[in-house]
Design a protein around this nucleic acid. Structure first.
Lengths: 179, 179
DNA sequence: GACTACATGTAAGACGTTACATGATTTA
DNA sequence: TAAATCATGTAACGTCTTACATGTAGTC
């Protein structure tokens, strides 16, 4: 039985020591969010389904009068997570990038304009990611994903800046560039 | 009234001269697919909705006994497309990358393994994109999106190869690397 | 007393893929 | 005549976001 997309992130986060739906969401929002988002509307129902399937086990641990359920992996849950981690099925990825779509359809002077917006987006990306404290776990891949995110946005900002310059230097194309 | 995600790609493709749902899908599959996919299940219903909203106009133009509807933009459709292209609302993007998620949860020797898979994925990406004929339109952004796709995958393959080397050189981390 | 953080949850709707169904035309 | 291509479409299902609802605990 396949793990649903959200199940993957939940199982992983629980193994990392996150015990409640709330805690899982907190960590997602400052870490995997950039390549794997999840909302409460997915998390809570999925926690229930995972418990029904016996992959996690919840215990009511109210803190004061505050309702609270701590989850942990069952042996079956550990296995399911590990099986997914070990599988060498091709890794799926999908991207939805409005900037690239706009650029695809842009013509004439719009092109330079759109490229600028794209570059600005990557520059904001660098800033946002730099604000995140890199996880200090010694032996795990998490910090590398953050490094990659920063490096990618830096590289992309540079690439689009170069593209802007290339465009400006070719006066045969794009009236605006030569003006 | 906002354009739905699929409406954006449809309007743009029609302006590019693609007239039928089938043609739109063909071009999407060899161009925007990598940053903006669309399936028949989205395209045909959306064509209908766009016509109801008066943004496109369809004409039955059977070729032989083969049913066929050619669409074109109405003036309102042109305006709606241009409005979206011109808007400087922040550009949305979302990524769902199973490789990065795996890496986030990987520990010990798994880390190097996952990085290798990610690098392989980008190498395949370069190859796939190189097979696409760059559109020869002189004055539009489309060819740049392909250039970017190739450059990104090349850069990423390189970055992950470097990461592998860095990992192998730090024997304090990851038993497998030192063995 | 007000605000923030902790904590859980649902309902409606938007979005998207997959698999299926149908049939004509062209090419090998 | 078989296969590929052109062409249109839907139904079922899975996924995800947004907005809402509720209440406690700690802090300023």
């Amino acid at each position: 039985m396949e793990l649903s997309p959200t199940a993957r992130v939940i199982l992983g986060m629980i193994r990392m020591g996150k015990r409640t739906g709330y805690e899982i969401k907190q960590l997602v929002d400052v870490s995997t969010r950039f390549f794997w988002a999840a909302s409460y509307g997915q998390i809570y129902p999925e926690l229930r389904r995972l418990e029904e399937r016996g992959l996690i086990k919840g215990q009511h641990q109210p803190s004061g009068g505050r309702s609270r359920t701590e989850y942990s992996l069952t042996p079956a849950g550990e296995r399911a997570l590990q099986k997914w981690l070990d599988s060498d099925r091709e890794l799926t990825w999908e991207l939805r990038d409005e900037g690239l779509l706009k650029l695809f359809f842009s013509t004439g002077p719009e092109v330079a304009q759109t490229i600028q917006s794209i570059r600005a987006g990557h520059e904001r990306g660098v800033e946002r990611l730099r604000e995140i404290d890199p996880p200090t776990d010694p032996d795990c891949g998490a910090p590398i994903t953050l490094e990659f995110g920063i490096a990618f946005n830096e590289w992309a900002a540079q690439w689009w800046a170069d593209a802007e310059r290339r465009l400006a230097r070719s006066p045969d194309r794009h009236a605006a560039a030569g003006a």
